[in-house]
Each structure stands twice: as structure tokens, then as C-alpha cells.
Design a protein around this nucleic acid. Sequence first.
DNA 1: CAGCCTCGAGTTCC
DNA 2: CTCGAGGCTG
Length: 747
Amino acid sequence: MEDKQVADLTEDEARDELARLALLLGEANTAYHGQDAPVMTDAEYDVLKRRNTEIEVRFPALKRADSASDQVGAAVSEGFGKIYHEIRMLSLENAFEDTEIADFDDRVRRYLGLTKAIFYTAEPKIDGLSLSLRYENGMLKQAATRGDGNIGENVTENVRTITDIPKALIGAPAIVEVRGEVYMSHVDFAALNERQAAAGDKTFANPRNAAAGSLRQLDPTITARRPLRFFAYSWGVLSEFLSDTQMGAIDWLKSLGFQTNPLTKLCVGPEDMLAHYRSIKAQRATLGYDIDGVVYKVNDLALQSRLGFRSTTPRWAIAHKFPAELAWTRLLAIDVQVGRTGALSPVARLHPVTVGGVVVSNATLHNEDYIAGHDSNGNPIRDAKDIRIGDWVQVYRAGDVIPKIADVDLARRLPEAIPFSFPHLCPECGSEAVREEGDSVRRCTGGLICPAQAIERLKHFVSRGAFDIEGIGAKQIEMFFADSALPIREPADIFTLESRDAAGLIRLKNRDGFGEKSVTNLWAAIRARRTISLARLIFALGLRHVGEVAAQDLSRHYQSWEALCAAVDLARPAALAHRAADEAENAERVAAALEKRRAQITLVHTAAIAAANVPSDSAAAWHELITADGIGPTLALSLSDALANSEERASIDRLIAHLTILPPEIRATQSPVAGKTVVFTGSLEKMTRAEAKVRAEALGAKVSGSVSAKTDLVIAGPGAGSKAKDAERYGVEMIDEDAWLALITGA
DNA sequence: CAGCCTCGAGTTCC
DNA sequence: CTCGAGGCTG
């Protein structure tokens, strides 16, 4: 049937064939996106996909809900449903040195205001995949991978085949989420690879990949034949909590029937933790499964909740990683890439070598000083080496991910090897590439003239946190940028794509990779993004120093694109005066060293003139900009430069013309301190300063360091000094710590 | 003004 | 994931 012409298929044959294709394409997609090796070439994939589309066109009624043709271009289906983690699955802060563990303990105790030693659990860090299991009324209901921490993949059916994971719990609360690590033992891994090889199937590079590949099988019967195991070590949502310590919770998980790691131990203070680390490290080879370090957690759960979280990691845990695996290989070439901001980044092309179970053929070389081994003044740089093409280099994967060069074997250096000369012209557009004083990167000055920068900025524009247009990813940007019939050269072009296509002679749908359906979907996806939040728009522009968070800050502060532009435009003279003053100050420093008085005097003079000519409303707009939350002079100047650049501005205006911009949502919060600016002063007795700040912010308050007319509330402990006086002077309400606690807990 | 924390921008492999 | 640097805190 596979070879039968589409025109000759009966309806039943077509249905079966679509099912077969769905399976094959699904597998290819999973393999392509996951950690597994690709199962087919792109060309083979295209042939199957085209056949799938042809059949669908002939038998529209048979089209499957999971049809691959619904995925546009190379954006392919995921194969698994998505599960939202009610409680985020976080990553851990990493430490490599013993001293970092003492630092961690110091930080924890300082934050809590404790001087005496505290208890930590220490357990091996299993090198597998984290998993969250949800039980309702004792029954396993859902299993999800970590994903990005917020949203994971639904692998419930596969997880049901893992014997270490109970399908039912006895005596458990109504809702229990258990978290832990899926892994494969060394023995099982070796046996699996032997079976795979015997059957002519691909073998896995390491147990971690084997576990990942097995868990992400679309067919649970395959997972069932893979020997996966599971250690429980944490939890998410619990309808009822039964312990007040980490160790107690682990014992509780064990009593529910989960495997917990036998090397989990309670330690007091850093020396004890390090001793257990060394003990685990010594046993590493005999454990029978891969571990990549030791995890320490504050044992007291009440303290854990006081410590809380930073943006991506808890403050109460740290992973102490084992030293990375190293491998020697030859450096074949050094290429220089150009990034979105014009940064020239050197990349090492290596003779392929296996490091930690993965074949590495590229490695980052950071910047030109890193390759030279010293900065532009000849001072040696920490960890950097004089690296030359042809050298034998030692490679490792930092954090087990990014390949880096650890060392160079000077004894094996060829006598003819010469130091790498870093280009001073952009390799992509030939513009001059300059290094700002004190900057470690050299940047192409070509701006949007440089094709590399233009492409990278477009890729950023359509990326996930920005416009996130389904069907236009990095690949499609490359394609459309080079396209002569239907080009995308700037963001606005994306929104004129459909009308240009309609008017064009060569229609998009007639070309490779785009069928009728995918074109329709693409237009729908683009239209859907004509309405966009202000924050996403600002972020998408890809201005230097303006990332996702800064974009949100700007959005929240100015509420509309017009208001933002008006403020930035108004602040322009003040911005220029600020820069002039900066340059004058720098010149002063240089002048002091080199006695270049004349140049300095000129700059100071220019700065003075610039400052004198700043209208007061401009100065006010500038002041508001740089005092807005999270915005400083560097970011403000970058923003100002971008909007004052006529070409850039015109390009942005062309884009805006196609958009409906949504103002930021006002955070609906009932807390009595929401939106208020509060200042803590004096000593606090029931909590530390840091805790107080975090709690206040969680309730929507803004915590400031100094009292001003804008302050709404001052919380004064004993020993409050000048800030209490300021509060009186500005007539700001002042309360003590107890009143504050009553206020926020009463809420 | 120094040190801490968070953010931005860079990169690899599959 | 990590480095460097911007912005904030003490």
C-alpha cells in the first residue's frame, strides 16, 4: 500500500495509510525535537508529509485530528499533551567548589537572621529526568515531565508502565503530587543497548538519553519494555501536609510506597555536608546508576517557606555538582558569528569528540580576549588561554550542556601556529567592528545594513517571548529573508506577507513545504498576532539592554506605546546631555593618566553646553525614565538612541501601523498594600529585611530604600533614625512592625 | 561605593 | 547554562 499511487487508494486503504503516516511523522517529530537521534532525513520526512497531504486532499473526510499538515513549515507536532504545573518545577542553583557550600550556608543563615548551625538534607543528584505525578483519591491520575518548569508533557500512559511508581496510594490525602527522577540503571542500560544493537535499532549514548527516549515514546508498550526506575524526592500540590521537615517528608514518601534514595542523610552545617558529599562521590562508581552531584536542602520546611524563591531557583537548596568530564581534541578552525546586537562571537570548530556521552564538534570561545588569553592591555584573564588553530584543546560541557575549552596543550602546539587574529571588520557585511572602552565584545557597526543582524533581529522578533508567530521560526526567517519573490526584511513585512502574496505572481502555496492548509494556517497565525501586548511589542523590537523584564517594566510604567515614545522623545536632549557628561567624565580619567587636557576640556565644554540646553521638561522626562522601576541610564540611553535613529524609527512606525497594542493588565489585587510604595527602617524583630521585602512585593507593594514624597507607608522598627524624620517631614504614614503584620495578614 | 542579585545576551546538542 | 554588566541595597 505504501507504494500505491494516491489516486488508486480505496477509502479504507487511505484511512490506514493516514494512520501509518501519522505514526511515522509523529515519531520523526518527537525524535527531531527530543534528545533521541533523528529517525529519518529531512528529505524522507518531506516525502511522507507530502503523501499525507495528498491523501487528505483526496479524502478530506478522513483527515486526522493530529494531522501533520496542520503544522506549518518545519514547526512540527509535539506528540504529547501539555500539563500546567500548578506549583512550578524549579531548577537548582549550582555549586562546584567546596567554598560555595559554606557561602550558601552563610547566605541562608544571614537571610533568616540565624547564627547557630542549621540542618540540611544531602542526597545524590540523580542524572535522569524530573517527573511530577499527580494522585487523586489515591489513584495515579497524571504524570508530567518538567518541561520549562511551568508546562510539561503529559506522559501518564508511559509512566503507568514503570514498576517503581505506584498506581495507587493507600492512606494518602485526597490530592498528592509527588516529584522525583526517572532514570535507568547501568546494568539495564547495557542490556537495552545490546538488545537494540541485536535488533538493528539505534543504541543510546548514555543512560540519561535512554531514559528520556524511553519515556517519550508515543507507544506505551515500547516504554513498558524499557527498564525505567524512579526515585521520589519532592512534592507539588498536597491537599494535606504531614511533615514539618524535608527528611520527614521523604520518609513519608517512602511509607506511601515510593523508592527514596538510601544515601539521603541529615547534616548539620557545611563541614558535615561536605563530608557526605565526599562519601557519595567515593561511592559513585558502585551505585549502579548515574549521578552528577549532591543536592542540599534546608531541612526545616518552615524555614524553607521563609526563604522562598528567586526568579528561577529556591533560596533553600543548592546542587553541588561533580567536576565535569573532560576530553582532548584538535581545534580545526575558529569561526566568527554575528549576533542580534552585532556582537562578534568566536566559535571553535573541533574534531568531533565524545564528552559526557555526547559528540561535540563546536564550542564557544566567548570573545577575543578569551582566545588571546589576555585583555587589550595585556593583563591575563582568568580561565582564558592563548588558543591557536591546530592546537590540542581540552573540552568540557559547562553545566553538562555548553561545550567550552578548559585547557590547551602547549607541548603539542605546532611551531608554525600563530595567534588568532580577531577580525576588526564584520565577517557578514564588512562594516567596521568596534570595541567600546571597557567592553569585552566587539560589535559590528553595520546595524540593520548587516544581513546577519537583520536576520537575528527578525528571529528574535518572532521568538517565544516576543510575537511568537506559529509557523514562522528561525528556519522560515532565513528562508523568507533570502526570498526574492516574497521577502521579509523587517518586522512590518511579516504583516504585509499575505497581501503581497495575493498580489504576487508566484504564490506561496505552490512552493515547497507550503500546502494549501499550511498557508491558510500561516495567515491565521499572523493575523492573530496583529493584536499584541505592549510589553511583547517592546521586547520584540530587540533593542539592546531591553529584555523581557525591562520591556514589562517600561510597559507598566508608560501604559501605552504613544506615552512611551513621547516620553523618550522628550527626554532626548537630556539623554544626550547625560552621555556627554559621561564622556567628559571618562575623558577626565584618561586625561589624568595621559595628560590629554585639551581633548578633555573640549568634552567638558560640550557636556556643559549640552546640559545648559536641556529644557526643564526634557530633564524631567529623563529623570522619570531612569528612576522608573528597573530602568537605569544605560537602558534609557539605548532606548533613546533607537527611537532617535530615523531609519529604526521609521521601521518601527511601519510595524506599528499593522498592530493593535494592548495596554498592560492592571494587576487585580485586593491586598491593602497593593500599588503602595513602602519603606522599612530600623530593626525588624519578626522577620529580616529581605523577607519583609519579598512578602511586601508578593502583596503588590513596591519596596523602596529611601523615603520621599512618593512613599505611602513607612514601617519603622526600634532605632529608626533619619528615615523616620523624613517620613514626618513628608507627612508619610508611619507604623511599627506589628501593625504592618496585622495589616498584611488581616488582608 | 561595594557587593549582591537579576537580567540580558551569548552558545550547543538533539 | 554561564558570563558580564546593569541596577539596587546597605
